Structures are given as structure tokens and as C-alpha cells.
Simulated assay, not measured.
Amino acid sequence: MSGARAVALCLLLVLAGCGGGPVATDGEGRMPTDTAATPSTAIDAPPSATPKPDGIEVEVIDVVDGDTIDVRYPNGSEDTVRLLGVDTPEVHAENDPAEFPGVPETDAGRNCLREWGERASQHAKEELMGETVTLSFDENEPRRGYYGRLLAYVHVDGDSFNYGLLTAGLARRYDSSNFQYRERYGTAEGIARGTDTGLWGACATDDPRTATETAIPIADGGPPLWISEIHADAAGDDRENLDDEYVTFGNAGNETLDLSGWTVSDEADHTYTFPDGTAIEPNGTLTLYTGSGDDGDGELYWGQGSPVWNNGGDTVIVRNESGDVVIEREYDG
């Protein structure tokens, strides 16, 4: 081949966009007809899919299960999307209760997870089916997973559907991944577990219930207070170590939560009232110790002379300044 012909061929390849990879097709071997601009970073999707500032818009054409959907790109080609960072219970395979903390490895536990997997799938159908959604990707994760599915966050009207599955108690955080929102997703799962929301209230118990027998979570629209830890059994003799008996509260909201005048009580009606000025910053915690000490730095002391929380099981009840129940959390010994 002459030098001039080689240069001409090389130029033709560059202009055709073929330098460094095969020509993209619409998934069935045809060249895409949509000539919209391609994103500046690889997305492993048809280059005819129009990039948006926050991702790629697609239409949801099928819901496989709670965390997997089929989508159609603007050029007509189709793809399967696995939601990043979350894992809903299986509906097409056997569930492993060990993947969901607190769910017993029994037939009842597996059956309960299956029911909540069905509920997660139904939720996805109601929220996503036929909708135009936005896909975005994670810099710490490949664009496609082991099974060739696109790994993405799904946004509906600007809200993260992935994250919403966690707050609704319909999924756990997917731990076999280094995605960039691991900490935030872990906090969301912890709040759902701590408030017995969704599958956690139904399945993470010695006596798993059906999907219709849901435990009582924080009231919808109520304060974002949650219980992150109940440490009822102090080391050694409880009576001699009251400062090792405590309850830790967290604020899952975006604003400071004022607890002035709120109360904490047990089944025996021992009651502690939060002093004026008590507050928890967003994503902050506050620990209430049974014994005596100096309040401050996220620590409060009840000043009791004997244990309050029963080692064999009790109920933590939190009421606001109006006396309305905000949290009612049972625990077993």
C-alpha cells in the first residue's frame, strides 16, 4: 500500500470514530440511527444514548425483580441494569438469610425474605415501569458486572431509587462492592434496621412474620430519630457498672433535631426527660447512660442507682414534648 493511501485510510478511520475500538451498533448488529453527542467518559452503553449532566435518560420496559430492570435507549436498543449498592431479597432463586443480619436461617426466615422480595419487585414496578429515568454511574465500579449487566444508580425525578429501597426497608446494602456511597448506604440500612422498617421488622426476628405483618416503624413524616444501639447487659454485675448500660440515639435527618422535653421510658415506666437544649446534629449520635456522670459531648447520664434496661428483653419508648410516641423499640435478651 502506498504511503498516501495509508495516510488516507488512517484519516478515514479517525473520522469514522473507529480508532481504538469496534463500531458501536444498536445491539442487533445495525449501526445506530440517532447521532446525538456521546459523553466525554466511557459509559459502556450505545453511543447514541444522549448524555445528560447527571447521566443518561432511558425508558424502563420491564422489571426483573426489585434490583434489576430492563431499559430502552433513545435509539431503540435495550439493556439490563443492575442497581448499584443494594440487594433486595431473591424472587427467582433461594434466599440466604445469612446475607440479611438478624434473619434466622430457617424456612420461616427464607419464606419471609421471599415475600419481601416480591414486595420489592412490586414496588419497583409501581415506581419505574414505563417511566423515563436517569442512569448514573460510579467511578469506583466498572460499567458492567460479572453477568454483563449495566451497573447504575437509577434516578426518578431527581431522587435515587437505589437509596429509597434502603430507607423503605426493602433491601440491604450490597457489601461486595467498593462503590463511593458505601458509608451513606450503610447508615440508611442501619436506620431501617434500627427502626424495624420493612423486611427488618418482619424477618429479622426469632418469629418471622409475613409481609403484611409489618413492625411499626417511625411514623411517616415524623422526626428522623432512630436507635442505633441498646446495650442493656453491662459488663460484670450490672448494678456495679451502670455506666456500661446505655441507649444510643441517632439523627438521620438533614437538620439539627431538638429533643428538649422529650422522654425515654421502659416497660416499667422508668422515665428520663431530655434537658432543655438537648439536640443531635445531622448524622450525629447521643448516648444516654443509666448511671451518673457529667453531661456533654453527646453523652447524657440518667442518674439512676440501679439498672433500668432488662437484660432479658424490654421496650425503649421515646415520646416528644407533646407526649406522642416517636419510637417504640422492643429488644430481646
Rank of each mutant, 00 (worst) to 15 (best):
G3W: 11
G3M: 11
C10W: 15
V14A: 15
L15A: 12
A16L: 13
P22T: 07
D26Q: 04
R30Q: 13
T35M: 13
T35I: 14
A42E: 15
A45T: 15
P51M: 10
K52I: 11
P53V: 04
G55K: 09
I56F: 14
I56C: 09
V60Y: 01
V64F: 11
D65T: 04
G66Y: 01
T68Q: 10
T68K: 04
D70Y: 07
Y73S: 05
G76H: 07
D87W: 05
P89L: 06
H92L: 13
H92E: 14
A93R: 14
A93N: 10
E99T: 15
E99C: 07
E105G: 08
T106F: 06
G109K: 01
C112H: 07
L113C: 03
R114S: 12
E115S: 12
E115N: 07
W116S: 02
R119W: 06
S121T: 15
L128Q: 00
M129Q: 13
G130F: 06
L135Q: 00
E141I: 01
R144L: 12
Y146C: 03
Y147V: 02
Y147N: 05
R149G: 02
H155L: 04
V156K: 12
G158V: 01
S160E: 06
F161H: 07
R173L: 10
R173H: 14
S176P: 05
S176D: 15
S177M: 07
N178I: 12
Q180L: 08
R182P: 00
E183C: 04
R184G: 00
R184F: 07
T187D: 15
G190K: 02
T195I: 11
T197E: 15
L199T: 10
A202D: 12
C203R: 01
C203M: 05
D206Q: 13
D207N: 13
R209S: 11
T210G: 15
T214M: 09
I216A: 11
I218C: 03
A219E: 04
D220G: 07
W226K: 01
S228V: 13
G236P: 09
D244R: 10
E245G: 00
E245V: 03
G250S: 01
G253L: 05
T256N: 03
T256W: 02
T273V: 11
P275R: 03
G277Q: 10
T278P: 14
I280P: 01
E281K: 12
E281R: 12
T287A: 06
G291F: 05
L300S: 06
G305M: 03
S322W: 02
E328T: 06
D332K: 08
G333W: 11
